[in-house]
Write a protein that binds this DNA or RNA. Structure first.
Length: 194
DNA sequence: ACGCTGATGAAG
DNA sequence: TTCATCAGCGTT
């Protein structure tokens, strides 16, 4: 079942941690693609220098100030998209960046999007969606998906009963940012550890 | 370690 | 209008 609004309307660090193991799916033309979330990062409020909302509300960051449970999709480095889930209360800009998934559905479709073929090597299979830009490419998420409602629209997150122990979660500082590096706001599900 | 690529927002 | 910056990726 889809995660309810109340799941997202909580402390962003808690949401980021609990999103690990949830199934993130995109329905396109009746077919579903996606997988289990394995890596997340929290971006919290105007006081977080790495948060896009740190310079106040702009056309781009407007969605971050809105209702939780919506998607924030932005275009980065001239060629990639990243997807975030809005958290916390209305008016408080915070979100969780989805950095990686373990594919469960529509693997052939995702392989075709990433590599142009379904005939891929084991190495390529591992790399289909193990990065924020890669997973958006694989799941065909783009700017048209910005502001979508995760409770109703074609993007959705589902509780599939995955149990993840504390030992399986690596907590580190965030990746690819110049400021706010000291904050341990990145969560990685290390499936092989227990 | 680097080049690719274009939106974004601040400055002028 | 120009400019620096950028929550990434693939190849070297």
């Amino acid at each position: 079942m889809r995660l309810p609004l109340l799941f997202y309307q909580r402390d962003t660090l808690l949401v980021a941690r609990e999103l690990l193991g949830k199934e993130f799916l995109h329905t396109i033309g009746g077919k579903r693609v996606g997988g289990l979330i394995t890596e997340t990062e929290a971006y919290i409020g105007v006081d977080d220098p790495a948060c896009h909302a740190a310079r106040g509300m702009t056309p781009r960051t407007e969605v971050m100030f809105g209702r939780a449970g919506h998607a924030y999709v932005y275009f980065i480095y001239g060629m990639y998209h990243c997807v975030n889930f809005i958290t916390e209360r209305d008016g408080f800009p915070a979100a969780v960046l989805i950095r990686a998934i373990a594919p469960t559905r529509g693997v052939d479709l995702m392989a075709r999007r990433r590599y142009g073929t379904t005939q891929i090597t084991q190495k390529q299979k591992k790399n289909i969606a193990n990065g924020p830009g890669k997973l958006c490419m694989a799941m065909d998420i783009h700017r048209g998906d910005n502001k979508k409602d995760l409770l109703k629209d074609s993007l959705g997150v589902y509780d599939v009963g995955t149990k993840i122990s504390k030992k399986e979660v690596l907590v580190t500082s965030r990746i690819g940012i110049a400021v706010g590096r000291d904050l341990p706001w990145r969560f990685v599900w290390q499936k092989d550890k227990h």
